Computed example of a mutant assay.
Amino acid sequence: MSNRVDVAVMIGSGVPKGLRATGQKACWVVLVNGEQRGTAFSSRMEAEECRAAWLAQLSAGACAMQARAQRA
């Protein structure tokens, strides 16, 4: 199964209250197969780091599943 991991921007009222309270007018979130995972980030760079971690985790899981299938 192929997983899609994206970074999306949220603006205005889509920004969580805590970030809006600090003056943040935009934030970035990580989407895995279209669903938000984790928190909203105040910078795109933070969200991209989280995206990379998700990709690594999903890749490792896929490799483990493939190895199990080959042993069966």
Rank of each mutant, 00 (worst) to 15 (best):
Q66I: 05
A72W: 13
A62M: 03
E35G: 11
C27E: 03
G12D: 12
S43I: 07
V30G: 08
R4K: 11
R44A: 15
V32F: 04
G12T: 05
V32M: 04
Q66C: 03
G61E: 14
L55M: 10
R44Y: 06
Q70I: 05
W54P: 03
G23H: 10
S43A: 12
V5E: 00
L55C: 08
G18Q: 11
A72M: 13
R20T: 01
V7Q: 07
T39E: 15
I11N: 10
L58P: 02
G61P: 04
V32K: 07
R20Q: 05
V32C: 13
Q66F: 05
D6H: 13
L58S: 08
T39H: 14
A21P: 03
I11L: 15
A21F: 01
A62C: 02
C50W: 08
S42A: 12
F41Y: 11
G38S: 09
A47Q: 12
G38A: 10
K17R: 04
E35H: 10
W28M: 09
V29G: 08
V15C: 04
L31E: 14
A52Q: 15
R44T: 10
A21M: 12
L19G: 01
C50P: 00
M1E: 09
A47C: 08
C50N: 07
A69G: 01
A47K: 08
F41V: 06
R4S: 11
C27L: 05
E35L: 14
P16A: 05
D6P: 07
G12P: 06
I11H: 05
G38Q: 12
E48W: 04
S2G: 13
R71C: 14
A67Q: 09
V32S: 02
C50E: 12
V30P: 09
S43H: 10
R51D: 06
Q66Y: 02
S2W: 05
G34T: 15
R51T: 02
S59Q: 09
G23N: 14
A62Y: 01
C63G: 01
I11D: 07
L19R: 01
E46V: 08
R51I: 02
A67H: 01
V7D: 11
A40E: 10
G12K: 04
V5T: 15
F41L: 04
V32Y: 01
V32H: 04
M65Q: 12
W54C: 06
V29H: 08
G61M: 06
V9G: 05
T22Y: 00
Q24L: 11
A67I: 00
V5L: 02
E49Q: 11
V7M: 11
T22R: 07
G18Y: 04
C27I: 06
V5G: 02
A64H: 00
R71M: 12
R20E: 00
N33Y: 14
